[in-house]
């Protein structure tokens, strides 16, 4: 087994272009499980551990989060907690401190695991991912990045380098519904972020990817319980739900209506 240890983004994308079969490892919390379970095997690996430029975070203007910034940093950073409390809450909701100390911003998006906490909040926050390859850099809204179960719109040779979260103009709420242990992944993950007079509600962890319905959100009357209930019911009815150990499709349909309503009432306070 060979580990490549590039030290810059340029090195990473060049190494990857030359070795498209070599998995890129960020925090390793997801790939580690897949390797242990025999689902991923490779002779060559690319580690991001020495790419210090990916560990940077800036909060002047928008929040710029390097791909190797850990969940734990986002959870604890004073500025993030003050200005982007929804983002801090969504990353804090993940698993346990020992996982959050390793898991990264780039990793959670590239995995595109349906049962992760942060994607719904990042989509609700209008976050944009910056993606590099030997061909250059492009920007993709997170909403368009995750397209299905463990699949993204990225090309094989691309690397998420950072995620930019606009400075919010309104309240943000993250609601994680756990049906088992407090360390469990969400049975439903509802993010609501107010932008001026409008709201972006995103529902994750109940289907193949996070879902956002702009036309439904546009009907919102802030603070109106009936409006919140109607939007909740509309979200509940539009999504195609999965069954898993955390809940049946029928249960998820039921709780999405409740959780969206509660999130909308919370951001209107």
């Amino acid at each position: 087994m060979t580990w490549h240890l590039p030290t810059s983004v340029d090195d990473v994308v060049r190494t990857r272009a030359e070795r498209p079969e070599a998995p890129i490892v960020a925090g390793g919390t997801f790939l580690g499980i897949l390797v242990r379970q025999g689902l991923v095997e490779a002779d060559e690996w690319i580690s991001l551990q020495r790419v210090t430029e990916l560990t940077r975070m800036h909060s002047a203007g928008d929040l710029s989060v390097g791909a190797m910034v850990t969940h734990r940093r986002l959870e604890l950073d004073d500025t993030v907690r003050t200005i982007w409390p929804g983002v801090a809450a969504a990353f804090k909701a993940v698993a346990s401190p020992r996982v959050r100390n390793r898991a990264t911003m780039g990793g959670v998006l590239a995995d595109a695991d349906y049962a992760s906490d942060p994607p719904s909040m990042l989509v609700a926050s209008n976050a944009v991912a910056e993606i590099a390859s030997v061909r250059g850099t492009r920007r993709v809204p997170v909403e368009d990045l995750i397209i299905g179960h463990y699949s993204t719109s990225m090309e094989e040779d691309e690397l998420i380098t950072r995620v930019v979260v606009p400075r919010p103009t309104g309240a943000a709420v993250y609601r994680k519904l756990r049906t088992r242990s407090q360390e469990d992944r969400p049975a439903s993950s509802v993010a609501a972020v107010v932008h001026g007079e409008t709201v972006r509600v995103v529902v994750g962890a109940v289907s193949d990817r996070p879902y956002h319905f702009a036309d439904v959100c546009s009907q919102w009357r802030p603070g109106d319980l009936d409006s919140a209930r109607e939007i909740g019911e509309e979200y509940a009815s539009r999504i195609d739900y999965i069954d898993d150990n955390r809940g049946s499709a029928a249960y998820r349909r039921h709780v999405v209506g409740v959780e969206v309503r509660r999130a909308l009432m919370a951001v209107a306070r």
Binding site: G247, S248, A249, A250, Y251
Partner: peptide, 16 residues
């Protein structure tokens, strides 16, 4: 949680 709800509401949530 879904067994709890089903136990009162008689909802037909299927088991996982």
């Amino acid at each position: 949680p879904e067994r709890v709800l089903a136990a009162r509401l008689g909802d037909t949530f299927q088991s996982p």
